[in-house]
């Protein structure tokens, strides 16, 4: 954000001037399913790592216990962050990229997005490799729709 924009926002906040939006979330028109795909794969990787993380014995030294908890928390945090990124990216594609003009050929578009967004939420809450694989597959399906819509634009 430029200095002028920052000053304008400060000025508006001071005077109680509210923003009113006349655009989409990505007015520059740049869309890609790659970010969602990468985030979904990260969620799956974290699930695998969490499942395989060796649990120290109850008699292990305090330092090992602490190190284990630290690693566990970091993995959970990364998983949740990327599930949220995935959801956000999918919602942008759903609400901004796909429009009646280019969504026509995809009869199950809304259901696919809805289920994928639900899977993001589920993966935030649980450690479940099968569900994170489902998320990867759902995002791949959306990426395929996206590629088809892009190809149709060029014909």
């Amino acid at each position: 954000m430029s200095l002028t924009q920052q000053l304008t926002r400060l000025f508006d906040r001071w005077l109680g001037i509210e923003p009113v939006f006349a655009h989409c979330d990505v007015p520059c028109g740049i869309y890609t399913p790659e970010t969602a795909s990468l985030a979904a794969r990260t969620v799956h990787t974290m699930n695998k790592k969490l499942t395989e993380l060796p649990v120290p014995a109850a008699t292990a030294p305090a330092r090992d216990q602490l190190e284990y908890r630290n690693t566990l928390v970091r993995m959970v945090q990364t998983k949740e962050q990327h599930a949220q990124v995935c959801k956000q990216e999918l919602l942008i594609l759903w609400s901004d990229y796909f429009k009646p003009e280019n969504a026509g050929p995809f009869s199950d578009l809304h259901n696919t997005f809805w289920k994928a967004a639900k899977l993001c939420s589920y993966n935030k809450q649980h450690v479940d490799g099968a569900k994170s694989q489902e998320l990867i597959d759902a995002v791949a399906k959306i990426a395929e729709m996206f590629q088809q819509a892009e190809a149709a634009k060029k014909t």
Binding site: T8, D12, L15, G16, I17, E18, P19, V20, F21, A22, H23, C24, P27
Partner: peptide, 24 residues
């Protein structure tokens, strides 16, 4: 009547980004 700042271009050229409007 509140003042509102327009963000975005979807109402151009009638309303342009950065313009200040009165909403009744």
């Amino acid at each position: 009547m509140p003042l509102m700042r327009v963000y975005g271009h979807s109402m151009a050229p009638r309303l342009r980004e950065g313009e200040l409007v009165v909403v009744r």
